[in-house]
Simulated assay, not measured.
Amino acid sequence: MLSDIRIVEIEALGPAPFTAMLLADLGADVITVHRKTASDVPGKGERNLLDRGKRSIALDLKDPEDVALLRKLLRTADGLIEGFRPGVMERLGLGPEPCLEIQPKLVYGRMTGWGQSGPRVQEAGHDLNYIGLSGALWYGSPAGVPPFPPPTLVGDIGGGALYLAVGMLSGLLKARVTGRGTVVDAAIVDGSAHMMNLLMSLRASGGFRTERGQSLLDGPHWSRCYRCADGSYLSVQCLEPKFYRLFVDKLGLGDDPDFARQFEQGLWPDLGKRLETLFLAKPRTHWLALFEGSDACVAPVLDPESAAGDPHMAARGIWSEEDGRLQAAAAPRFDGNPPPRPRAAPERDAHRDEILAELSGS
């Protein structure tokens, strides 16, 4: 879909390379400017899964000759992605202004936690800090325990990488029409706060409260996970009354007057305890067989390796062993076609000769 787009990515951690991977998955020619030596941060070795489908050239951005090479590369680029703290690229002489002088239609994507302005811009931080400040962490766990959502998904990926991807694509569309580039300020605090607007819409109608454990999606017995006799877990979220009735009927609780009062908040804690006891009496296989094929909104909670073997996930080819590592397929899909199989992540500087040959001919 993006085969005529070239993105230059400056090596960073977390959401910036994820965005570049997503664009590469969608067909863009992503050239990663790696450091000449590997980072000592775990997960950033010589070959990183997030580099799949990309090409690599290693440059020292403090070396004038390498900076000159990067500038030449930018003349051929549609977009640039960087994930440094504000001011770093400017100090390297590679801020938006000089880069847009080199390539006026360049979409300059900036990925940070705190953004490009505000009192915290020079402070260090990570996923939990950003979503804690933005409000997105508040409902991250059941009431009574500290909030902790799945690592990186809400902040780095949801509020960061995906918003940068949308911003990059919007900027690329603008550049196609106007011939002028733009700067995308993608901050995790911005994106993760924006993601809260669905919950804010429920709050406006009375369906969500500030207090944890008191709202439609974070408090009821029909919107949580339960442990089974074998130590595995089930997810239950039958919000709509017709689905809830199926759920309680399948459990043989359809005639119980308390379970019939789905939205009576005062009953939720006791009914949740009753379901805890019930689900603990049988292994997950029993419950999955009971609910199979129904609209009761019950599903297993699986680790990635187990998810790869699930019939639905396997039928869609979502998880696979590629390049010696378990990884998820590209998303979204188009016209019912299976997602493309991404190329393996390259070794650092693997495409130097190829890229230099292209630049010499441009």
Rank of each mutant, 00 (worst) to 15 (best):
S3T: 12
S3Y: 02
S3I: 00
S3A: 15
D4N: 11
R6K: 11
R6I: 05
R6Q: 14
I7P: 10
I7F: 08
V8P: 09
I10K: 04
I10M: 10
I10T: 02
E11S: 14
A12G: 10
A12T: 15
A12Y: 12
L13R: 07
L13F: 15
L13S: 02
L13G: 00
G14C: 10
A16T: 05
A16M: 12
A16C: 03
P17F: 10
P17Y: 15
P17G: 08
F18S: 02
T19G: 05
M21T: 00
M21D: 06
L22R: 12
L23C: 07
L23V: 06
A24H: 11
A24N: 14
A24T: 06
D25G: 03
L26N: 02
L26H: 13
A28P: 07
A28K: 05
A28N: 05
D29I: 01
V30N: 09
V30L: 10
I31P: 01
I31H: 07
I31M: 04
H34N: 10
R35Y: 05
R35K: 13
R35H: 14
K36L: 03
K36A: 02
T37M: 02
A38W: 02
A38H: 09
S39R: 07
S39H: 14
V41D: 08
V41M: 07
V41T: 14
P42F: 09
P42S: 10
G43E: 12
K44F: 13
K44S: 08
R47Q: 11
R47F: 03
N48D: 13
N48I: 04
L49A: 14
L50H: 09
L50V: 15
L50P: 00
L50I: 11
L50F: 08
L50R: 10
D51Y: 13
D51K: 00
R52K: 06
R52I: 00
G53M: 02
K54C: 09
K54R: 14
K54F: 15
K54Q: 13
R55A: 05
R55C: 05
S56D: 06
L59S: 04
D60E: 05
D60K: 06
D60N: 14
D60M: 08
L61M: 11
D63Y: 12
P64Q: 10
P64G: 12
D66V: 08
L69Y: 07
K72F: 04
L74R: 08
A77P: 13
D78Y: 03
L80N: 01
L80H: 02
I81R: 04
I81T: 14
E82H: 07
G83Y: 11
G83T: 13
G83I: 04
R85P: 06
R85F: 07
P86T: 00
P86C: 00
P86M: 01
G87S: 05
